[in-house]
Every structure is written in structure tokens, then in C-alpha cells.
Computed example of a mutant assay.
Amino acid sequence: MRIVVEDAPFDLGAETAQFAAGHMNMGAVVTFTGVVRDSETSPLQAMEIEHYPGMTEAALTRIAQDAMARWSLGDVLVIHRHGRLVPGEMIMMVATASKHRKDAFEAAEFLMDYLKSRAPFWKREVTSDGAAWVDARAEDEDALHRWTPS
């Protein structure tokens, strides 16, 4: 398991190749990469992402450990950037490895839902209209609830 929180861009191809190379007994490697997208209301100049070092890594480690316990996984990788990013830049990556694709896909989706709604990052969109903090979206909360027991 590897958790990375950094301001520098990451090389998606290299990260994927490195992650997949060490798992000869795994039949599935699933990756997802989030990209900063333009705003729907006003052209986005930048997305500014803040976090508390130490707290963020600990929270991401806990959720990755939860994924490892819930699904039969061989490994998990989570990379999340912070700082000032512009549209088109990669903001995060999740990779999961398992013997079978179902576990890899479900665990990756679980991690992505958590990152979107609960990870301790604060995002501010900067447009020509000014800067505004990004509020939680109801659909992100709904997606996360499917992973909690009723």
C-alpha cells in the first residue's frame, strides 16, 4: 500500500507500470485518474487544494486499509495532489490490484467515492468572477452511502 500527497505532477504511465509490475499473482489492476475540469458556470482559471499534512495521509491510509479489509486486494495506491492546479491537470490517482476484477473495480470505486466526499482536502475554484470554496455535492454523498451498512 502506498499513499502519496504531493504538489508536484505525477507520471500516470510510470505510476501505473510500477504498480502493476510488482503483482505477478494478481489478475486485475484497476486505475482511475481524476482530472481538473473546467467550471460549468465561469471558465476555471485554477483549482486550489489545501490540506493538513499528516492528518491527510493518516486519513487516506485508514481508508486504504479499510478497502484492503473489505476486498481481496494485493495492493492499493492513492496519489492526491494539492496546491494550484489548472484545468486538464491530473489531480489524483487510485490503483487497486486483486486476483479478480470484481474486487479491484469495487475497491477502486469505494476509494474514489471516499476521496470525493470525505478525504480532508479543501478545494477552491478560481474564476474570472473570483474565488469560491467548493461545496459538497449531494450525489457524492449518495455514492458514499452505498458502502455503509444499513
Rank of each mutant, 00 (worst) to 15 (best):
H80S: 07
G22N: 08
R84S: 12
S150W: 11
T148L: 15
M26I: 10
G130P: 02
V5T: 05
E15L: 06
A97L: 08
I91Q: 11
M24T: 12
A97C: 10
I63S: 06
I79E: 00
S150P: 15
E106K: 09
E109R: 14
A28F: 04
V29T: 05
L60R: 00
H23W: 12
T96M: 04
W133S: 10
V4R: 07
E89M: 11
T127N: 02
K102Q: 15
D140R: 01
R2Y: 10
T41Y: 12
K116Q: 10
A14H: 10
R37A: 12
E15D: 06
Q18C: 14
F105Q: 07
W133L: 12
R146I: 09
M112A: 11
I91G: 10
P53H: 08
A95I: 04
I63E: 13
K102W: 14
S98F: 02
M90L: 13
F19P: 00
L73W: 02
A67R: 00
R137I: 13
D7E: 15
K123V: 03
A138W: 15
K99D: 15
R146Y: 03
H80A: 05
A8Q: 14
H51Y: 07
P120V: 05
F10D: 03
L111M: 04
I3P: 01
T127A: 02
M1F: 07
Y114N: 03
F121L: 08
R146L: 11
G130F: 08
L115V: 00
A131G: 11
L44F: 06
G13D: 09
A17L: 10
V4L: 10
K102G: 12
G27K: 02
V36R: 00
H51K: 03
W71R: 00
F32W: 15
M112K: 07
D113M: 02
A8Y: 08
L85C: 03
A14V: 10
V86M: 12
R70P: 04
W133Q: 09
V5P: 01
A8P: 03
A20Y: 02
E6V: 13
L144T: 09
M24P: 07
A136M: 12
T31V: 12
L44C: 04
L115C: 04
D75V: 01
D66C: 09
